[in-house]
Every structure is written in structure tokens, then in C-alpha cells.
Amino acid sequence: MSESTLLLDHGSGGMASNRLIGDLFFKHFGNPILNEMNDAALLDITGPITMSTDSYTVDPIFFPGGNIGTLAVHGTVNDVAMLGAKPRYLSCGFIIEEGLKMSTLEKIVIEMAQAAKEADVLIVTGDTKVVPRGCVDKIFINTTGVGELILPEATSGAHAKPGDAVLVSGTMGDHGLTVLSNREGLNFATDVQSDSAPLNHIIEALINEIGDIHVLRDPTRGGLATTLNEIAGQSKVTIKLIENQVPVRESVRNGCSFLGLDPFYLANEGKLICILPQEKAEAALTLMRTMKYGEEAVQVGTVLDPENSPGKAGQVVLETPLGGHRLLNMLEGEQLPRIC
């Protein structure tokens, strides 16, 4: 690109737009479907599909472990996969503030392309809008994902059953604290970085090699506690969480203590919750621990019949290190704004 900053002309649909699309987006996102340059993408999918869309407004747009672009790819890939599907295609829409450095946009696009390649998905269609200064904070990105269902029946938050094991693929709260500490210039969490990552390969392996997966979820906004409350409500069960079994990095725990935050409610962007029969839990953990992004997988709780548990249907009960119990309620509002 000859221009050093984004101009309103780059969103005009004219020659400047064509240069931006050809010299930047097609250069890094190019594939046979996108390169057709049609108004829509013709997709080859058989059978049931899953679909998800999300918009990303994270501040700051670069943070240890990723940026707004990689987050947009990972977040939508993971959402599509959580129903027991293989993500195949992404659309990508950019809303960009006039004056953004072209080098900044190119870095985002290059790392988005790398993230899509790792997840084995194609970016097949998209849109770019450039708006006047002040109308948007640097850059917002929307991604929509489409995937092929690879289970006979999609997983669901309503499928947890008493006796099931609750597994997580790794430590909680890394992304939320990383974004907050970088936004505010805090340095107590210098060894922590975002966990943003594609989880679809772990999910596909669990489906193909373990089977009988009841629930898959990624505990993003609202964190582990809020997501488990949603599952307990959908399935009308009680979920017991063992506090000292939930993995939290010491630096995250210390940062949360300093700020008065609870790591159980912090966002994660590269961790999954897997709920399946207890007899399959050890095999699932062994498999996840052999895979990238699943090395620290552990069982953190169990699903209980409300009639024989310390809680009611739809509740999450936390067992403390002293053996007591307390309710772990759903997050009331947004704990940290603009983290995704």
C-alpha cells in the first residue's frame, strides 16, 4: 500500500477501496472462494450446519497473546465448534477509524490470516467501512462463522446429566486480566498473557476419540461461574465446583486480589468446558493434555441431582478448601468492559 494511513476514500468503493482490498485483504486472506470477488460466497456444505456471529471492540487492540484480529477469528471459530461442529468458513467485516495507520491494520490482517490457517478455516467474504475520526475507536471487527455438524446430535447446555464430570481445558481468567492490566498500565501481571486460541481441534478429537460429549462451552464474558450457571439452568441440575481444583495462575490470583476481582468471573478466550459421563472423564483429560491448548486440563466439578445436593436446580455450589459450601451466582453485570 502506498498510503500510510486509512482515509475515508478507502471505504468509498472506488479505486482506493480496490487498492485496500487487493493489496491487503486479498494478499493475506486470499483463497479460491474469496478470490471470486462476488457479492456473496458460494459454500459447499452438506448436512446440518452451525453458525455464530460476534463483534469485537477490545481495548487495547494489541495485548500480550493476541490482538483484536486473532481474537475475532478464535472467538467465532470456538463458538461454532461448541455445538460439536467443524468450523469451515468465516466472514469478516471491518469498521475502521479514519487515520488508523496502515501498518497497524496490516499487522492485524496478517495475524488474522495466521489464526485462520491454524484453525483450518477460510475467510470467504467480507466488508470494509472507513468512518470519520471519533465515530469508532480505531477498529471494530465482526466475524460470522459457519461449520458442519460432526455429531449425530448437537451438544447443548441443556444436556448435562447427574453424575457427569465437569472438565476445563486450562487456567481461568488469563484473558480478562491481561486486557485489563494492559489497558490500565498495570504491571503486576507481566507474566500473564491472553489465552486466545482455536479450540476446534481439541473438540474434534474429543468427539472422534472419546464420544458421548453432553456439553461444550467456552467461558468467555462472565467467566467460568456465569457459564456454569447458564448450563445448570438449562439442564435443571446442580453443579458442584471444587474451589481448589480450578486452575488459576498465581499472578492472576494476585492481580485479582489487588483489584478486588474474582478469577471465576473473568473472561477466557482459549479455554473450554466439557461435560461428559464420569467414566469417560480420565480418558478425555488424557487426550486433552496431549494437545496444544489442553495441556493443563483438569476436572473441576460434577453434575448433581438437585434432590440429593447442597443446592437447587439451576444453581452452582462452590465447595471451599475447608469443606464448606456457598452459592456461586451468575455475574450481575459487566465486570470488565471491552475485553472482546
Rank of each mutant, 00 (worst) to 15 (best):
G126H: 03
P162C: 02
V131H: 08
M102P: 04
R183Y: 13
R133T: 14
V166D: 04
L100G: 05
K138A: 10
I139N: 07
A160N: 01
A165V: 04
K161D: 07
S156P: 05
D218S: 05
S194F: 09
P198S: 01
A197I: 01
G173F: 05
C135F: 13
A119S: 05
H214T: 05
G93E: 11
S91Y: 00
A116H: 03
S91D: 11
E184Y: 12
G173Y: 08
K117M: 10
T128K: 07
L216H: 03
L206Y: 03
D127E: 13
A197R: 04
I213C: 07
F140I: 13
L216S: 09
I207D: 05
M112N: 10
Q193C: 15
A154P: 12
V179G: 12
H175Q: 04
I202F: 01
L177M: 11
G163L: 04
Y89V: 09
D127M: 11
T220E: 11
G176D: 05
A119G: 06
M112I: 06
V109G: 01
D174K: 13
P162W: 07
L122S: 12
M112L: 07
R221G: 11
I213T: 04
V192W: 07
Q193I: 09
I110F: 06
F140K: 13
G173P: 06
I123N: 00
F140Y: 11
Y89D: 08
V121K: 08
S156G: 10
E184G: 05
K107S: 15
V179K: 08
G145L: 03
K138Y: 10
L206A: 06
V192D: 04
L186R: 15
D212R: 12
G99L: 06
T128G: 04
